[in-house]
Simulated assay, not measured.
Amino acid sequence: MDRPLLSLRTTLVFLLASLAGAAAGALTAYAGEGTPRGALAGLAAAGVAVRFFDRLVAAEPDDGRPHRAAGDGGGEGAGHG
């Protein structure tokens, strides 16, 4: 088995989501809401954070071609007038 179980991007998204969930759960429990509510808040925050970090972390290019950055002159209206 030469390939990794998860891609680097997926691992990063799950790591950031678990850290966000742990922080939210710990802060909720520390605020006096109790351990069960802290655990529920942490799980909810981790679920939302997965979607957030999935959109935040750049996706890997599919076709292997480099993507042009915004404002590099290769768009409609660039140099036309």
Rank of each mutant, 00 (worst) to 15 (best):
A70V: 14
G75D: 13
V13N: 00
F53R: 04
G47T: 13
E60K: 14
T35R: 11
L27R: 14
D62C: 06
A23C: 10
H67T: 15
E76Y: 10
G77T: 06
F53I: 02
H80P: 01
L40K: 05
A49W: 00
L40Q: 09
A45D: 01
V13M: 02
V50G: 01
H67V: 12
V50N: 01
A24P: 00
G47A: 15
A41P: 00
V57I: 15
L15C: 06
E33T: 02
T10Y: 03
L8C: 03
P4Y: 05
S18L: 06
P36H: 09
L19S: 05
D2S: 10
A59C: 11
G73T: 05
A20G: 02
R3L: 04
G32W: 15
G79D: 08
L40D: 04
R55M: 05
L6W: 07
A58H: 12
D54Q: 08
R51N: 11
Y30N: 11
D72H: 12
G74Y: 14
L6D: 07
A24G: 02
P61G: 06
A69S: 12
G32E: 13
R65P: 00
G71H: 05
L19F: 15
T10Q: 15
L27K: 09
L19C: 11
A31L: 13
S7D: 09
A31Y: 15
L27Q: 08
R65G: 01
L15R: 05
A58F: 05
A23M: 12
G73S: 08
V57K: 02
R37T: 09
